[in-house]
Design a protein around this nucleic acid. Structure first.
Lengths: 192, 192
DNA sequence: TTGACACCACTCCATGTGTAGTACTACGTT
DNA sequence: AACGTAGTACTACACATGGAGTGGTGTCAA
């Protein structure tokens, strides 16, 4: 029987994200989720029809949780409008996303898993597209310098910088990473 | 007993790369490698002391195979020295790496696995550092415009673009990807 | 003949799934 | 207040899968 306790379902999905980050996509089993969420064996089985179901819901959830919170947005609105402020913003962004280690790693695992699962690929593609569009729209409304291409290029660059930091942290030092973020903004964001 | 037939060992490592790309890091078992390499069950067991051993060797091998071949390097030497030529080069690079789908995906899987395996992380960190250094050195010797920071920024940007293409190909169209590569070179590579 | 290797067979063990069945709890009814 | 019922939490089990490791036999070449 499919269970309907939404609070418990959410706890299971969050547990799934932790498992994804820690053990990888193939380690994401009903059993592992049960253990992570500290619920009895078999619970996840009761809440999700299939592994695909669980995976897809986890994918959607990670994106929800990666959105910046109200306070962060407010702080951004209060900041300046020049490239200096932009760079500071981006450095903060990299730090914030990288701090959400498990979420970001789970996302990477899901991307790789999407390679094999069309249903998941569909969900992730929509999410990522929406994310790109939202960033461009937000940027345009913010009055910060630079065009849509600059926003996309920055997203590409910073994404890989985060991957680098999370998977092989010793390739670049923290100072180098900060320098790269600053340089990226300086060069990519051209005055219009 | 540890076997020493190097040809067979290489075949097994290459098979491991295919398995990594297709099934993920957790799918990389001795059995799966045996099957992929079409050798009897138990062979990989005889050739590698442990799963860590196999993983580490696979990581090193992927990097060997991702290096451009002689012909590509020669073609690059013959090309022009302006940003236009640079952009064309980068578009070709993205195409070439993305065409090596299994190798690149295997690398991503290994990066994620490196999160959990210090030994593998060490090997990969050295490889990636060497790769960055080699790219910077090659660039400086080539006479192309732009500084070391530009090379690193381009590597970051293009790496994620490739991830995007390989994992969620429908987020950007091919035309958009080409446009992004061109724009990246134009903006990141500043004249000195 | 001896040594290295390919190949095969077998045992042991870990892990996961699905589901039947039991226990608990809340809530509505009388 | 006592009872019944529904939904859920939890447990246990049956079944299946897959992988590791190892001992042994066959084969080939020096």
């Amino acid at each position: 029987m499919v269970r309907r306790n939404e609070q418990r379902r959410a706890a299971l999905v969050d547990a799934a994200i932790e498992v994804l980050a820690r053990e990888g996509a193939r380690g994401l089993t009903f059993r592992a989720v049960d253990t992570e969420a500290a619920v009895p064996v078999g619970t996840a089985s009761n809440y999700f029809a299939s592994r695909d179901d669980l995976l897809t819901q986890a994918g959607a959830r990670v994106y929800e949780r990666l959105q910046p919170d109200e306070a962060t947005i407010a702080r951004q609105r209060a900041a300046g409008r020049d490239r200096e402020a932009y760079a500071a913003l981006m450095r903060e962004l990299v730090g914030r996303v990288a701090a959400f280690r498990t979420g970001y790693l789970a996302l990477l695992e899901l991307r790789l898993e999407a390679t094999r699962r069309p249903e998941l690929r569909k969900v992730l593609t929509e999410r990522v597209r929406a994310d790109v569009d939202a960033n461009v729209a937000y940027h345009e409304a913010s009055g910060l310098p630079g065009d849509a291409t600059a926003v996309k290029l920055l997203m590409l660059t910073l994404n890989w910088l985060i991957v680098e930091q999370l998977t092989l942290p010793d390739v670049f030092t923290e100072a180098e990473r900060d320098h790269l973020v600053t340089a990226a903004v300086e060069r990519i964001v051209t005055a219009e």
